[in-house]
């Protein structure tokens, strides 16, 4: 990906969903540009299309029209497989509901993105443990996710999202399922890691407080983004 240039560009992006017999227009010509290393919060009411926007930026979903470039790569020009590989190499994801894999231990959850990108040597293990230490959960390396608290699970999810040093971190309501104290600890862990790696970060949230900690706030309103 380009260094310090515009990391993400959305140009006149439209997206709608069929809901029964009616069409729900989620994005109606959204355009935005985010620089590399920038930390951006996206605010908006429920159903305004915040998660859709993240899915489009990650290549999980495609827009009906418009262009999305991530690190100069036009996602619309990639095949589904190439978009997946692009996501694997360049993007980290943090979800509201932790989304750890229940049949893998904490350490294995962290190793998975590294294995997917082909780093399976001893350095991968060191890297995973380094991230576990950073989120202060090294002692839980061998535990399965169902043995962890919500806050612990989310910190693991953050470590997993950053373990393969992605250029872009996408976080969908990372504190939405946590109490305030735990949420704060999670956000601090997130900020520390992102800052250490210089990762571009987009956080979708309802929380004004969390949004206030970012470099920039965008509000999604009636299908369009505007500076908050």
């Amino acid at each position: 990906m380009n260094d310090r240039g515009p990391s993400i560009e959305l140009i006149d992006v439209h997206k709608s969903y069929e809901e029964g017999e009616r069409t729900h227009e989620v994005l109606t010509g959204t355009s935005v540009s985010i620089r590399a290393g920038e930390r951006v919060a996206i605010l908006g009411p429920s159903g305004s299309g915040k998660s859709t926007l993240l899915n489009l930026i990650s290549g999980i979903d495609l827009p009906d029209s418009g262009t999305i470039r991530v690190g100069g790569t036009d996602l619309g020009a990639l095949t589904e497989r190439d978009r997946t590989l692009f996501r694997r190499d360049h993007i980290g994801f943090v979800f509201q509901f932790f989304n750890l894999l229940p049949t893998l231990t904490v350490l294995e959850n962290l190793l998975l993105p590294l294995e997917l990108t082909g780093s399976t040597n001893g350095r991968a293990d060191d890297r995973a443990r380094e991230l576990l230490a950073a989120v202060e959960l090294e002692a839980r390396a061998g535990a399965f996710p169902d043995r962890l608290s919500g806050g612990e699970q989310q910190r693991i999810a953050i470590a997993r999202a950053l373990v393969h040093e992605p250029d872009l971190l996408l976080a969908d309501e990372p504190t939405g399922n946590l109490d305030q104290d735990t949420g704060t600890r999670v956000v601090e862990a997130l900020e520390a890691l992102v800052a250490a790696q210089g990762t571009t970060m987009i956080v979708v949230t309802h929380s004004r407080e969390l949004a206030g900690r970012m470099d920039r706030i965008l509000e999604l309103d009636h299908g369009r983004l505007r500076e908050g």
Binding site: E80, R81, T84, R87, D89, F95, P113
Partner: peptide, 15 residues
């Protein structure tokens, strides 16, 4: 389905 969805989001391909 959810786990598979997570894997897909993490970059596991369809193949």
């Amino acid at each position: 389905r959810e786990i598979l969805g997570r894997l897909r989001a993490l970059g596991v391909t369809r193949d």
